[in-house]
Amino acid sequence: MSGNVLIYIAVMAGVTYFIRMIPLTLIKKEITNQYIKSFLYYVPFVTLAVMTFPDIIEGTASIWSGMAGFIVAVLMAFFGRSMFQVSIAACVVVFITELFIC
């Protein structure tokens, strides 16, 4: 079993590294095609938004504490707070909310 686990780990590490490395090393030039350029420009916004919601309310002990953290984070980010402040505030809000409702 133990030897097998190491091979599993090697296989998954290899596959995962290649997925990350191939585009980063093959795309050396600045892309000039306007459509692809625009597509890649929008990718991070979509990806990060999709990863954030609804996951932020599902990982916490209650969806309401997650929701409170989400709203506070959005408001703070909207008013220009730093990434660190937004992130910590979300954690603190979740913690305090759960003290009351859980």
Partner: peptide
């Protein structure tokens, strides 16, 4: 468990800080 639950949103808070200001 409370601490784990609270820390689990740290990453999402970070994502929000990236996407909201440009929005």
């Amino acid at each position: 468990a409370r601490v784990i639950s609270a820390l689990s949103v740290a990453l999402y808070g970070m994502f929000i800080a990236v996407i909201i200001p440009p929005s």
